[in-house]
Design a protein around this nucleic acid. Sequence first.
DNA 1: GTAATCAGTTTCCTTTTGGTAACCAGTTAC
DNA 2: GTAACTGGTTACCAAAAGGAAACTGATTAC
Lengths: 123, 123
Amino acid sequence: MKKEHKACMSALLPVRDTLDVIGGKWKILILISIWEGNKHFREIERSIPKLSTKVLSKELKDMQANQLITRTVLNGFPVRTEYKPTAHSKTLKKVILELQDWGIKHRKQIFGDTSETDHSIRV
Amino acid sequence: MKKEHKACMSALLPVRDTLDVIGGKWKILILISIWEGNKHFREIERSIPKLSTKVLSKELKDMQANQLITRTVLNGFPVRTEYKPTAHSKTLKKVILELQDWGIKHRKQIFGDTSETDHSIRV
DNA sequence: GTAATCAGTTTCCTTTTGGTAACCAGTTAC
DNA sequence: GTAACTGGTTACCAAAAGGAAACTGATTAC
């Protein structure tokens, strides 16, 4: 009797999509920074230590393409850009909380860590 | 008045942990393959097209370290190894479903895709 | 003029990740 | 003997991601 090897992999396309949108080192950090109210390029950059201009620039473009943020150029003196979170971006909060929950449980599983540090996301 | 730039980043460590565990191109596929009942190295390898021996070997080690699977060597003739999912790994199903849900919504948001393809994960 | 701020882009380099293919050890079947 | 299967490891490359620093262009303040 042959094994079946059911694929089910088509169901994983949306999972991959999501990981592409929020995966990587910086995307969630940048999103949270913007959720917190940081609007301008340099402001966001300075709010996240070790984040380089180049990477921020690229990530912001990705996030714009994914409709997580909007970009508005304000015609002013030292030209300002305004990044704002979209309603669509807010739907990610549930996902992020789920990732956070599992991460906490996982830590306990691996390290038997029972410390009750504050892990809440305040965004 | 100075901006606050609340960090909240410590809350993101568990999120990063989770993304490290399930992120990457192959981890979820391998996990699902094992959930489906594939037990042996070559069996898992063959169940996932384009997956190389080297990468599978590395990913299985990671997943073992993260206690998602167990590895048992059966002393037999063409030496067989058995990989089995742990109870801990099953707790990831909820997370994966959440990622999948958001991915589907995201696709609709971006492409206005209203097709009702079967996206259920049967694992 | 100089210096500084904004919002990035460009160039170069290093690190990480992934892929290909050969190889090893052990056993079975021919 | 050879070939084929098991479960991997090793060496070598290619591509992608990430980081540091210089630079552009516009404007304001001095």
